[in-house]
């Protein structure tokens, strides 16, 4: 078994303890595991590469600072990190817009017409979804992203958002209905067949 194989098998808890004990490879492994997930969520929630990068770096920085005091088993490291990232996103939104989501700032999905290029079609689909996500209220967007893009369980989302599982269910259900309404009539445009 190689050292890389061994680190693959370690839990996030164990890696965080190794990091706190001075193991630099543990920091690299944790970054590889966790940072892309945080960045992906932040991108979906903030709709800005620059903001997502800032949120990701700040969330990971807080992870490094917290490492010596981490209590293994008290919570999942990823759950804690998602929670920090979501709170950072909310703080940035509030600071930027005085507590209100500015719908005018949300980019409209590009009108791709009838492009035959597969790549362009995929981009159009992602833009359509992102545009619709950005029209959701903040908490609905977070819940939908965590549930359907990160594929986390409802109890884990509840822990991240510090709400009940029932509240998560309600947020995701309303969010999906709103997305369906926002995207209604665009199936053909986005290259999906009916039925």
């Amino acid at each position: 078994m190689t050292a890389a194989d061994a680190s693959d098998e370690l839990s996030d808890d164990a890696l965080l303890r190794l990091y706190a004990n001075g193991d630099r490879r543990a920091a690299a492994e944790l970054t590889t595991r966790l940072a892309p997930r945080v960045y992906g969520v932040a991108m979906r929630v903030m709709n800005s590469h620059a903001e997502a990068e800032d949120v990701t770096q700040e969330a990971m920085l807080r992870l490094w600072k917290m490492a010596p005091d981490w209590q293994p088993g008290a919570a999942k490291v990823s759950t804690w990190l998602y929670r920090v990232a979501m709170n950072l996103c909310i703080d940035r939104k509030r600071r930027a817009r005085g507590g209100h989501v500015d719908l005018d700032a949300v980019p409209e999905p590009p009108d791709q017409g009838q492009s035959a290029a597969e790549r362009m079609q995929e981009t159009a689909r992602q833009d359509a979804l992102q545009g619709a996500l950005m029209r959701l209220p903040e908490r609905q967007r977070q819940a939908v992203v965590l549930r359907h893009l990160e594929e986390l369980s409802n109890p884990e989302i509840a822990a991240i958002m510090e709400i009940t599982v029932e509240a998560v269910e309600s947020l995701t259900a309303r969010g999906k209905r709103a997305l369906a309404a926002a995207l209604a009539g665009r199936r053909a445009e986005l290259g999906y067949s009916d039925g």
């Binding site: 706190a20 960045y39 490094w64 490492a67 992602q126």
Partner: peptide
Amino acid sequence: TARAARPALPVHLAAAILDDAAAQQPD
């Protein structure tokens, strides 16, 4: 579609995160 095309972590961001990790690492 969105899950299949997750945004990749920018290289410069990964480097900045590891710099932070080295700076914050306990002894």
